[in-house]
Protein backbone atom coordinates (compact mmCIF):
# COMPACT_ATOMS: atom_id res chain seq x y z
CA UNK A 1 0.00 0.00 0.00
CA UNK A 2 1.10 3.53 -0.58
CA UNK A 3 2.67 5.16 2.41
CA UNK A 4 4.81 8.22 2.27
CA UNK A 5 6.92 9.02 5.31
CA UNK A 6 4.55 9.49 8.22
CA UNK A 7 5.40 11.87 10.99
CA UNK A 8 3.39 11.53 14.18
CA UNK A 9 0.00 13.17 14.05
CA UNK A 10 -0.75 15.64 16.74
CA UNK A 11 -4.51 15.51 16.96
CA UNK A 12 -4.93 18.77 18.86
CA UNK A 13 -3.54 21.94 17.41
CA UNK A 14 -4.08 25.33 18.92
CA UNK A 15 -6.19 26.44 16.00
CA UNK A 16 -8.61 23.58 16.36
CA UNK A 17 -8.89 24.04 20.08
CA UNK A 18 -9.57 27.70 19.57
CA UNK A 19 -12.14 27.02 16.91
CA UNK A 20 -13.92 24.61 19.21
CA UNK A 21 -13.71 27.11 21.98
CA UNK A 22 -15.17 29.72 19.66
CA UNK A 23 -18.17 27.48 19.18
CA UNK A 24 -18.56 27.27 22.93
CA UNK A 25 -17.80 30.93 23.47
CA UNK A 26 -20.65 31.86 21.17
CA UNK A 27 -23.31 29.94 23.04
CA UNK A 28 -21.67 30.55 26.41
CA UNK A 29 -21.44 34.24 25.70
CA UNK A 30 -25.17 34.51 25.13
CA UNK A 31 -25.89 32.34 28.16
CA UNK A 32 -23.59 34.57 30.18
CA UNK A 33 -25.27 37.76 28.97
CA UNK A 34 -28.59 36.17 29.84
CA UNK A 35 -27.33 35.16 33.28
CA UNK A 36 -25.97 38.64 33.92
CA UNK A 37 -29.22 40.27 32.89
CA UNK A 38 -31.24 37.95 35.13
CA UNK A 39 -28.83 38.42 38.05
CA UNK A 40 -28.89 42.21 37.85
CA UNK A 41 -32.64 42.28 37.51
CA UNK A 42 -32.98 39.86 40.40
CA UNK A 43 -30.74 42.03 42.55
CA UNK A 44 -32.95 45.03 41.85
CA UNK A 45 -36.14 43.13 42.37
CA UNK A 46 -36.05 39.57 43.77
CA UNK A 47 -39.59 39.01 42.58
CA UNK A 48 -38.17 38.78 39.08
CA UNK A 49 -37.27 35.18 39.81
CA UNK A 50 -40.57 34.20 41.38
CA UNK A 51 -42.01 30.94 40.09
CA UNK A 52 -44.75 32.82 38.34
CA UNK A 53 -42.36 35.20 36.65
CA UNK A 54 -40.04 32.44 35.47
CA UNK A 55 -43.04 30.66 34.08
CA UNK A 56 -44.09 33.81 32.26
CA UNK A 57 -40.59 34.27 30.89
CA UNK A 58 -40.46 30.73 29.56
CA UNK A 59 -43.95 31.01 28.14
CA UNK A 60 -43.05 34.28 26.52
CA UNK A 61 -39.91 32.83 24.93
CA UNK A 62 -41.50 29.63 23.70
CA UNK A 63 -43.04 30.76 20.46
CA UNK A 64 -40.12 32.97 19.46
CA UNK A 65 -37.70 30.14 20.30
CA UNK A 66 -39.54 27.63 18.12
CA UNK A 67 -39.60 30.09 15.25
CA UNK A 68 -35.92 30.83 15.82
CA UNK A 69 -35.00 27.14 15.66
CA UNK A 70 -36.79 26.85 12.33
CA UNK A 71 -35.20 30.05 11.05
CA UNK A 72 -31.75 28.86 12.12
CA UNK A 73 -32.13 25.72 10.01
CA UNK A 74 -32.80 27.90 6.99
CA UNK A 75 -30.17 30.54 7.75
CA UNK A 76 -27.50 27.84 8.18
CA UNK A 77 -28.07 26.95 4.51
CA UNK A 78 -27.41 30.58 3.52
CA UNK A 79 -31.09 31.34 2.99
CA UNK A 80 -33.70 33.23 4.94
CA UNK A 81 -37.40 32.69 5.59
CA UNK A 82 -39.30 35.94 6.01
CA UNK A 83 -42.70 34.24 5.75
CA UNK A 84 -42.68 32.59 9.21
CA UNK A 85 -44.81 35.28 10.83
CA UNK A 86 -47.46 34.85 8.15
CA UNK A 87 -47.33 31.05 8.41
CA UNK A 88 -47.80 31.35 12.16
CA UNK A 89 -50.78 33.62 11.57
CA UNK A 90 -52.43 31.25 9.12
CA UNK A 91 -51.82 28.24 11.32
CA UNK A 92 -53.16 30.01 14.41
CA UNK A 93 -56.30 31.06 12.60
CA UNK A 94 -56.71 27.60 11.10
CA UNK A 95 -56.53 26.14 14.60
CA UNK A 96 -59.36 28.36 15.77
CA UNK A 97 -61.39 27.78 12.65
CA UNK A 98 -60.99 24.02 12.95
CA UNK A 99 -62.19 24.11 16.56
CA UNK A 100 -65.18 26.17 15.50
CA UNK A 101 -66.00 23.71 12.72
CA UNK A 102 -65.26 20.54 14.69
CA UNK A 103 -65.28 21.31 18.38
CA UNK A 104 -64.33 17.78 19.39
CA UNK A 105 -61.00 17.65 17.56
CA UNK A 106 -58.35 16.06 19.79
CA UNK A 107 -55.41 18.28 20.70
CA UNK A 108 -52.90 15.91 19.11
CA UNK A 109 -54.75 16.08 15.80
CA UNK A 110 -54.80 19.83 16.09
CA UNK A 111 -51.03 19.97 16.61
CA UNK A 112 -50.48 17.69 13.66
CA UNK A 113 -52.82 19.75 11.51
CA UNK A 114 -50.90 22.92 12.36
CA UNK A 115 -47.56 21.29 11.63
CA UNK A 116 -48.90 19.88 8.37
CA UNK A 117 -50.30 23.22 7.25
CA UNK A 118 -47.00 24.90 8.07
CA UNK A 119 -45.09 22.19 6.22
CA UNK A 120 -47.24 22.67 3.12
CA UNK A 121 -46.66 26.43 3.17
CA UNK A 122 -42.96 25.84 3.77
CA UNK A 123 -43.00 23.47 0.80
CA UNK A 124 -44.35 26.28 -1.35
CA UNK A 125 -41.36 28.42 -0.34
CA UNK A 126 -38.89 25.59 -0.69
CA UNK A 127 -40.34 24.43 -3.98
CA UNK A 128 -40.04 27.87 -5.56
CA UNK A 129 -36.54 28.37 -4.22
CA UNK A 130 -35.17 24.94 -5.03
CA UNK A 131 -36.78 24.32 -8.41
CA UNK A 132 -37.05 27.79 -9.91
CA UNK A 133 -33.67 28.69 -8.38
CA UNK A 134 -34.71 32.11 -7.16
CA UNK A 135 -33.39 33.92 -4.09
CA UNK A 136 -35.06 33.03 -0.81
CA UNK A 137 -35.26 36.61 0.38
CA UNK A 138 -37.42 37.58 -2.59
CA UNK A 139 -39.62 34.49 -2.54
CA UNK A 140 -40.32 34.55 1.18
CA UNK A 141 -40.90 38.30 1.12
CA UNK A 142 -43.51 37.50 -1.51
CA UNK A 143 -45.10 34.67 0.45
CA UNK A 144 -45.03 36.86 3.56
CA UNK A 145 -47.60 39.00 1.74
CA UNK A 146 -49.42 36.11 0.07
CA UNK A 147 -49.87 33.99 3.21
CA UNK A 148 -50.91 37.01 5.28
CA UNK A 149 -53.33 38.04 2.56
CA UNK A 150 -54.87 34.56 2.51
CA UNK A 151 -55.15 34.79 6.28
CA UNK A 152 -57.07 38.08 5.99
CA UNK A 153 -59.29 36.71 3.25
CA UNK A 154 -60.13 33.70 5.34
CA UNK A 155 -60.70 35.63 8.55
CA UNK A 156 -62.66 38.46 6.87
CA UNK A 157 -62.38 40.49 10.03
CA UNK A 158 -63.61 37.72 12.30
CA UNK A 159 -62.03 36.99 15.63
CA UNK A 160 -62.03 33.59 17.27
CA UNK A 161 -62.35 33.72 21.03
CA UNK A 162 -61.40 31.48 23.89
CA UNK A 163 -65.01 30.38 24.16
CA UNK A 164 -64.72 28.76 20.73
CA UNK A 165 -61.86 26.54 21.84
CA UNK A 166 -61.99 23.55 24.19
CA UNK A 167 -60.79 24.26 27.74
CA UNK A 168 -58.32 21.38 27.57
CA UNK A 169 -56.56 23.06 24.68
CA UNK A 170 -56.41 26.41 26.40
CA UNK A 171 -55.15 24.78 29.57
CA UNK A 172 -52.21 23.46 27.57
CA UNK A 173 -51.26 27.10 27.08
CA UNK A 174 -50.92 27.74 30.79
CA UNK A 175 -50.36 24.39 32.50
CA UNK A 176 -47.04 23.38 33.94
CA UNK A 177 -45.38 19.99 34.42
CA UNK A 178 -42.93 19.98 37.32
CA UNK A 179 -42.88 23.76 37.17
CA UNK A 180 -42.14 23.85 33.46
CA UNK A 181 -44.85 25.29 31.23
CA UNK A 182 -46.12 22.68 28.79
CA UNK A 183 -45.47 25.02 25.89
CA UNK A 184 -41.84 25.44 26.93
CA UNK A 185 -41.53 21.65 26.96
CA UNK A 186 -42.63 21.64 23.36
CA UNK A 187 -39.93 24.16 22.55
CA UNK A 188 -37.30 22.18 24.45
CA UNK A 189 -38.24 18.95 22.67
CA UNK A 190 -38.06 20.65 19.29
CA UNK A 191 -34.74 22.25 20.16
CA UNK A 192 -33.09 19.05 21.35
CA UNK A 193 -34.37 17.00 18.42
CA UNK A 194 -33.28 19.53 15.79
CA UNK A 195 -29.97 20.21 17.54
CA UNK A 196 -29.17 16.51 17.68
CA UNK A 197 -30.10 15.99 14.05
CA UNK A 198 -27.94 18.86 12.85
CA UNK A 199 -24.91 17.58 14.73
CA UNK A 200 -25.20 13.84 14.32
CA UNK A 201 -26.85 13.15 11.00
CA UNK A 202 -25.51 13.36 7.47
CA UNK A 203 -28.48 15.44 6.37
CA UNK A 204 -27.80 17.94 9.14
CA UNK A 205 -24.14 18.27 8.34
CA UNK A 206 -24.98 18.77 4.68
CA UNK A 207 -27.09 21.79 5.60
CA UNK A 208 -23.95 23.34 7.08
CA UNK A 209 -21.96 22.34 4.00
CA UNK A 210 -24.47 23.99 1.67
CA UNK A 211 -24.37 27.22 3.66
CA UNK A 212 -20.61 27.12 3.90
CA UNK A 213 -20.01 26.93 0.13
CA UNK A 214 -22.99 26.27 -2.15
CA UNK A 215 -20.83 25.69 -5.24
CA UNK A 216 -18.63 23.17 -3.49
CA UNK A 217 -21.74 21.44 -2.19
CA UNK A 218 -22.94 20.90 -5.72
CA UNK A 219 -19.56 19.53 -6.82
CA UNK A 220 -19.53 17.21 -3.82
CA UNK A 221 -22.73 15.60 -4.95
CA UNK A 222 -24.79 16.94 -2.06
CA UNK A 223 -28.44 17.10 -3.15
CA UNK A 224 -28.54 20.80 -2.32
CA UNK A 225 -31.95 21.45 -3.83
CA UNK A 226 -33.58 18.69 -1.81
CA UNK A 227 -31.87 19.70 1.41
CA UNK A 228 -32.79 23.38 1.06
CA UNK A 229 -36.35 22.35 0.24
CA UNK A 230 -36.41 20.25 3.40
CA UNK A 231 -35.03 23.14 5.44
CA UNK A 232 -37.90 25.36 4.32
CA UNK A 233 -40.43 22.62 5.01
CA UNK A 234 -38.97 22.25 8.51
CA UNK A 235 -39.06 26.00 9.09
CA UNK A 236 -42.67 26.11 7.86
CA UNK A 237 -43.67 23.13 9.99
CA UNK A 238 -42.18 24.71 13.11
CA UNK A 239 -43.95 28.00 12.33
CA UNK A 240 -47.14 25.96 11.95
CA UNK A 241 -46.56 24.36 15.34
CA UNK A 242 -45.87 27.80 16.79
CA UNK A 243 -49.23 28.93 15.37
CA UNK A 244 -51.15 26.22 17.26
CA UNK A 245 -49.27 27.03 20.46
CA UNK A 246 -50.00 30.72 19.88
CA UNK A 247 -53.70 29.89 19.75
CA UNK A 248 -53.48 27.86 22.95
CA UNK A 249 -51.57 30.56 24.78
CA UNK A 250 -53.56 33.63 23.81
CA UNK A 251 -57.01 32.13 23.31
CA UNK A 252 -58.01 34.97 21.01
CA UNK A 253 -57.07 34.87 17.37
CA UNK A 254 -57.60 37.27 14.54
CA UNK A 255 -55.79 37.51 11.23
CA UNK A 256 -52.99 39.57 12.77
CA UNK A 257 -51.36 36.81 14.81
CA UNK A 258 -47.58 36.96 14.40
CA UNK A 259 -47.75 40.09 12.25
CA UNK A 260 -44.29 41.59 11.82
CA UNK A 261 -42.56 38.88 13.84
CA UNK A 262 -40.28 37.77 10.98
CA UNK A 263 -37.56 40.32 11.65
CA UNK A 264 -37.76 39.57 15.38
CA UNK A 265 -37.08 35.93 14.60
CA UNK A 266 -34.15 36.76 12.35
CA UNK A 267 -32.89 39.05 15.11
CA UNK A 268 -33.05 36.21 17.66
CA UNK A 269 -31.12 33.96 15.30
CA UNK A 270 -28.46 36.60 14.69
CA UNK A 271 -28.14 37.41 18.38
CA UNK A 272 -27.79 33.67 18.90
CA UNK A 273 -24.63 33.62 16.83
CA UNK A 274 -25.90 32.03 13.62
CA UNK A 275 -23.98 33.65 10.78
CA UNK A 276 -26.40 35.41 8.46
CA UNK A 277 -24.40 34.08 5.48
CA UNK A 278 -24.74 30.49 6.54
CA UNK A 279 -22.47 27.65 7.49
CA UNK A 280 -22.04 28.29 11.17
CA UNK A 281 -23.94 28.67 14.39
CA UNK A 282 -26.33 26.36 16.17
CA UNK A 283 -30.01 26.09 16.99
CA UNK A 284 -29.13 26.18 20.69
CA UNK A 285 -27.67 29.63 20.16
CA UNK A 286 -30.75 30.70 18.21
CA UNK A 287 -33.05 29.53 21.02
CA UNK A 288 -30.88 31.28 23.60
CA UNK A 289 -31.11 34.40 21.48
CA UNK A 290 -34.90 34.17 21.59
CA UNK A 291 -34.88 33.75 25.37
CA UNK A 292 -32.50 36.68 25.74
CA UNK A 293 -34.66 38.99 23.63
CA UNK A 294 -37.76 38.01 25.62
CA UNK A 295 -36.00 38.42 28.95
CA UNK A 296 -34.81 41.91 28.07
CA UNK A 297 -38.38 42.90 27.35
CA UNK A 298 -39.47 41.50 30.71
CA UNK A 299 -36.53 42.87 32.67
CA UNK A 300 -36.68 46.52 31.60
CA UNK A 301 -39.82 47.43 33.53
CA UNK A 302 -38.50 45.59 36.56
CA UNK A 303 -35.30 47.61 36.34
CA UNK A 304 -37.38 50.74 36.35
CA UNK A 305 -36.60 51.55 32.75
CA UNK A 306 -39.47 52.78 30.66
CA UNK A 307 -40.86 50.01 28.48
CA UNK A 308 -40.46 52.44 25.62
CA UNK A 309 -36.71 51.64 25.77
CA UNK A 310 -37.36 47.98 24.89
CA UNK A 311 -36.97 48.31 21.16
CA UNK A 312 -33.84 50.40 21.44
CA UNK A 313 -32.29 47.91 23.86
CA UNK A 314 -33.07 45.00 21.53
CA UNK A 315 -31.55 46.87 18.59
CA UNK A 316 -28.40 47.70 20.52
CA UNK A 317 -28.14 44.07 21.58
CA UNK A 318 -28.34 42.85 18.00
CA UNK A 319 -25.57 45.23 16.94
CA UNK A 320 -23.43 44.23 19.90
CA UNK A 321 -23.97 40.53 19.20
CA UNK A 322 -22.94 40.65 15.55
CA UNK A 323 -20.05 42.99 16.36
CA UNK A 324 -18.67 40.68 19.05
CA UNK A 325 -19.18 37.67 16.86
CA UNK A 326 -17.14 39.29 14.11
CA UNK A 327 -14.35 40.24 16.49
CA UNK A 328 -14.26 36.69 17.83
CA UNK A 329 -14.20 34.98 14.44
CA UNK A 330 -11.49 37.36 13.26
CA UNK A 331 -9.32 36.21 16.15
CA UNK A 332 -10.00 32.56 15.43
CA UNK A 333 -9.23 33.05 11.76
CA UNK A 334 -5.93 34.70 12.61
CA UNK A 335 -4.86 31.91 14.90
CA UNK A 336 -5.85 29.33 12.29
CA UNK A 337 -3.68 31.07 9.71
CA UNK A 338 -0.73 31.15 12.06
CA UNK A 339 -1.05 27.42 12.56
CA UNK A 340 -1.07 26.91 8.87
CA UNK A 341 2.38 25.57 8.21
CA UNK A 342 1.71 22.12 9.54
CA UNK A 343 2.86 19.76 6.85
CA UNK A 344 6.48 18.72 6.73
Amino acid sequence: MMTVDAPPVRPQTRGARLARRAFLVRELGIALALGLLVAVTFAVNPRFLSAQNIKDLLLGSTILAILAVGQAIVVITRNVDLSVGSILGLSAFATGALFVAAPGTPIAVMLLAGVALGAVLGAVNGGLIATAKVPALVVTLGTLYVFRGLDYMWATGRQINAADMPPGFLRMGTDTVLGMPVLALFAAAVLIAVGYYLRHYRGGRELYAIGSDPAAARLSGIPAGRRVFAAFVASGALAGLAGVLHAARFGTIDANAGLGSELNVVAAVVVGGVAIFGGSGSVYGAALGAVLLTTIRAALPVLGISPFWQGAAVGALILAAIGLDRALSARVARSLRERNVTHV
Binding site: L263, W309, A316, L319, I322
Partner: peptide, 21 residues
Protein backbone atom coordinates in the same frame (compact mmCIF):
# COMPACT_ATOMS: atom_id res chain seq x y z
CA UNK B 1 -17.29 44.63 7.67
CA UNK B 2 -20.59 43.28 8.99
CA UNK B 3 -23.39 42.03 6.74
CA UNK B 4 -25.87 44.83 6.08
CA UNK B 5 -28.85 42.50 6.40
CA UNK B 6 -27.98 41.80 10.03
CA UNK B 7 -26.82 45.33 10.84
CA UNK B 8 -29.94 47.01 9.52
CA UNK B 9 -32.24 44.52 11.23
CA UNK B 10 -30.47 45.69 14.38
CA UNK B 11 -30.87 49.37 13.60
CA UNK B 12 -34.44 48.71 12.47
CA UNK B 13 -35.15 47.71 16.06
CA UNK B 14 -32.89 50.39 17.51
CA UNK B 15 -34.25 53.37 15.58
CA UNK B 16 -37.87 52.31 16.01
CA UNK B 17 -37.09 51.83 19.68
CA UNK B 18 -35.67 55.35 19.89
CA UNK B 19 -38.85 56.64 18.26
CA UNK B 20 -40.78 55.18 21.19
CA UNK B 21 -38.27 56.69 23.58
Amino acid sequence: GLPSLAVTIGTLALYRGLAYV
